[in-house]
């Protein structure tokens, strides 16, 4: 019970500062779960994000469920997800009830313009840290560059592939051209 409560509180914390989309939670998860607690490895986090990208649902919830499940089974998976949802639900209920012009308030606009800068830098540093674990040879470098270009600049390209297709494609590429045994 105590462990479930701890799990819940960690995800309440992560859910309350997860600005900028599912992938922005990665630096927070790294800090809370890899560095401070050693519950999961960075490789596992990357795997969870890849699977979360090509399975249905909100990526942040997929990743929360994975981590909770690894720690405390089915109950853990549910607890972590509910923890993640707690603060966003409260915030939207408050906004819907009292602050319908929330996003237009100058103080909110300015604060979030600042937060977005921080999220960019946090993501950049997470990529730097993860790089050597995912991009291990020339093939993975090419794969990275292709997927990055297709995902980041899809608006300027003649073809636009859904992210799930890109991720599944990378998995198939791995099955045909990957090496087993040297990772994980």
């Amino acid at each position: 019970m105590k462990e479930l409560l701890e799990l819940y509180l960690i995800f309440v914390k992560i859910g309350s500062v997860n600005f900028g989309g599912g992938y922005a939670m990665l630096p927070l998860l790294e800090r809370e779960l890899v560095t401070e607690r050693g519950w999961v490895t960075t490789e596992e986090l990357m795997d969870y994000f890849a699977i979360g990208q090509c399975t249905p649902g909100i990526i942040a919830l997929n990743v929360s469920t994975f981590i909770g499940n690894k720690r405390k089974g089915v109950a853990g998976g549910i607890t972590a997800s509910i923890g993640f949802l707690t603060v966003p639900i409260l915030i939207i209920l408050l906004i819907a009830a009292f602050l319908t012009n929330f996003a237009e308030l100058p103080v909110v606009k300015n604060a979030f313009a600042g937060i977005r800068v921080c999220v960019c830098v946090l993501i950049l540093q997470a990529v730097e840290r993860l790089w050597s674990k995912a991009v291990v040879d020339k093939r993975t470098l090419v794969l990275y560059l292709v997927i990055f270009a297709l995902a980041a600049f899809s608006a300027y390209l003649p073809v636009s592939l859904p992210a799930a297709v890109l991720v599944i494609g990378a998995g198939v590429f791995g099955i045909f051209f990957g090496k087993a045994g040297d990772k994980k």
């Binding site: 994000f49 991009v135 990275y144 995902a151 980041a152 990378a170 590429f173 099955i175």
Partner: peptide, 23 residues
Amino acid sequence: EKAFYGLRAASIAMISAAGINVA
């Protein structure tokens, strides 16, 4: 294991793309 060899590269590429979109 081989699938994850590709998936991890995809994962970090998607994270980078998310960063570009925020930037």
